[in-house]
Design a protein around this nucleic acid. Structure first.
Lengths: 157, 157
DNA sequence: CTCTTGTGGTTTTAATTTGCAACCGATATA
DNA sequence: TATATCGGTTGCAAATTAAAACCACAAGAG
């Protein structure tokens, strides 16, 4: 591979003056596959073969994506927990902090991409099996706010 | 264009048995650019030229992405608000529901991709300019939960 | 009425990326 | 010793993307 791991977006976007708080994460994550890898990692998958079987993507692509995630500190490799000769890919703290992103995406998906009667898995509380609440954004004083109540700015500390 | 709008991921992923609640949204959104378009739409941009200038992507790509977002009901076209002969691209209710996804991504970006002293814009309360709270996931009973407290399952309603 | 400019695209073409398949080295297994 | 499995890498054809050129329409200038 002439390029380390070849991401069009990465190159395209990074020539921009300075990436904003939304573009930098996208740049680091790499692509859609990476997000699905991270989702699987949250579900407990950690071995190369597990990801490949779950996602059905080509091995060279998976290899490049994992390498990219590791290089951006989102995942890390550790010796196999079963003492086997292989390594495992697990989320770092930084990677685990992506949880709200995955949840938000999943909740949006559940709301708009399933028929009301279409059965589907969802994120539930381990303790009692009850679905979690919908994510809500709160202002500093506790009010629930949406996109019309907020704006992108330098904060007036 | 032989294909309607050509998305590798879309074809790749959709051959899987049935897309989960995370993959379906990704499939609909299309790609990274689309997410940045949506972010810009939240910031009030609506004209083709505005998006192109803001993102610096090729016009044919922007055209294809906008068409895809419209076809998935995330954005819609309306007559130009200034009475001009052109149209504007605005978020639908479905599109606006993506707000938490963008917020989660931005908050992650702010936490891990900026030096502590690096100045950057952030999402603030319009009323007082104070940054919003970090998104938190709550269980049905109100407890704050993280990835270790939850699991993907059919709910036990 | 003609010339020029700006907007909002489409078409053409070239470069990049993708994914399949084959291969490889290092264990395990028979 | 053969053979299979895991975790990849490499080569290559095919699909996708992006840059640039082109085009249509409207508005304004002269």
């Amino acid at each position: 591979m002439s390029d380390e791991s070849g991401f069009a977006m990465a190159k395209r976007v990074s020539h921009q003056k300075s990436l904003c708080g939304v573009a930098r994460p996208l740049d680091a994550i790499g692509d859609w596959w990476s997000l699905l890898i991270i989702r699987d990692a949250f579900d407990g998958l950690s071995r190369f073969g597990e990801f490949q079987k779950s996602l059905g993507l080509a091995k060279n692509i998976l290899s490049a994506r994992l390498r990219n995630l590791v290089s951006h500190g989102i995942m890390e490799t550790i010796p196999a927990s079963d003492g086997g000769p292989y390594q495992e890919y697990v989320l770092t703290a930084k990677g685990r902090s992506l949880f709200p992103v995955l949840v938000a995406l999943r909740q949006w998906g559940e709301e708009f991409f399933f028929e009301p009667d279409e059965p589907h898995v969802m994120l539930v509380d381990k303790l009692n099996g009850i679905p979690v609440k919908r994510l809500q954004l709160h202002a500093e004083d506790g009010r629930v706010v949406d996109s019309t109540d907020t704006i992108i700015r330098f904060p007036v500390i």
